[in-house]
């Protein structure tokens, strides 16, 4: 069984700050991490390797620094890691990203044969689109199951799994080859063993540029991206009101709150608060 895991390196969004003076996002000094959802894809890949003797490649498209994410990924005990890096890939939206990843996967296929399962995270913490998994599946012509929460069984040409949708969970049979995007519910990423960690620290990922994967520069990166970010801004902060009660008795605090609420016209919209404005209905 051949498996490819798509991972993305993202800034640790819990550390992103806003410089209120310049109204810029401060990215400097913000550490990069493997996108949290991708950690669960890596864990699943490690299990496939253990239980199904899978050959696992990890792949990412990104700048040279993304090497670090790939090395970390190898610590899950996986086989090889590939960085797709080229100036021609820069500035990609999801359509161009899926093109480049697709070409990368095809190149891996040349080396190890038909890819059975492609794993991705549900969404990336920075871009947060959740579109790359479905896009790659479409380009490959594979079946797709997004938002996988548990896997019941894996057979030669199908997987039975449960996935999350808005209205509930859904147990499905998915034909292999397939793309799965996974949610944090699926598993708990492991703490790598020391031998695997040491291997990952010494490991040098494979780096491919546009020629290596035979990518058409018109379809990759900025030129292959139909969408354009025309503007970014920091959302204006909502202005707070006053603290009306500080460490007073709960009764006083409650009374002050109800008195204060009366001042808002819109509370008439709330059934349960009409008593405040003397509406008997």
């Amino acid at each position: 069984m051949n498996v490819v895991v798509l991972i993305k390196q993202v800034p640790d969004t819990t550390n992103v700050r806003i410089d209120r003076k310049t109204n810029n996002l401060v990215r400097e000094g913000v550490p990069s991490v493997i996108n949290p959802d991708c950690m669960h894809a890596l864990e699943l890949a490690a299990q496939l390797k253990e239980k199904h003797n899978a050959t696992v490649y990890v792949i990412t498209m990104g700048p040279p620094q993304a090497i670090n994410a790939l090395k970390d990924a190898i610590s899950f005990g996986l086989d090889e890691a590939v960085l797709l890096s080229d100036r021609a890939f820069a500035g990609a939206d999801t359509l161009a990203t899926t093109y480049t990843l697709y070409k990368g996967i095809k190149k891996i296929e040349e080396k190890i044969g038909k890819i059975d399962i492609v794993l991705a995270g549900r969404q990336a913490a920075d871009g947060d689109t959740g579109q790359v998994g479905p896009g790659v599946a479409t380009r490959l012509g594979y079946s797709l199951a997004a938002y996988v929460t548990s896997i019941e069984k894996i057979e030669k040409d199908e997987i039975i799994l449960t996935r999350r949708l808005d209205r509930g969970y859904e147990k499905v049979r998915v034909k292999i080859p397939c793309v799965l995007t996974v949610t944090p519910e699926l598993n708990e990423p492991r703490y790598a063993s020391l031998p695997n960690l040491i291997r990952s620290l010494r490991y040098q990922p494979i780096v491919w540029n546009k020629d290596d994967i035979n990518a058409d520069p018109k379809k990759a990166g900025f030129f292959g991206s139909p969408t354009r970010v025309v503007n970014t801004n920091i959302p204006p902060a909502r202005k707070g009101g006053d603290i009306i009660s500080k460490n007073e008795s709960p009764e006083i605090a409650a009374q002050k709150l109800l008195d204060e609420l009366k001042k808002f016209e819109s509370i008439r919209l709330i059934e349960g608060l009409r008593v405040l404005v003397g509406d008997k209905k």
């Binding site: 703490y191 790598a192 063993s193 020391l194 031998p195 960690l197």
Partner: peptide, 9 residues
Amino acid sequence: ITSRPEGEI
């Protein structure tokens, strides 16, 4: 002995 599985050096 380190905190990792198979963690002896």
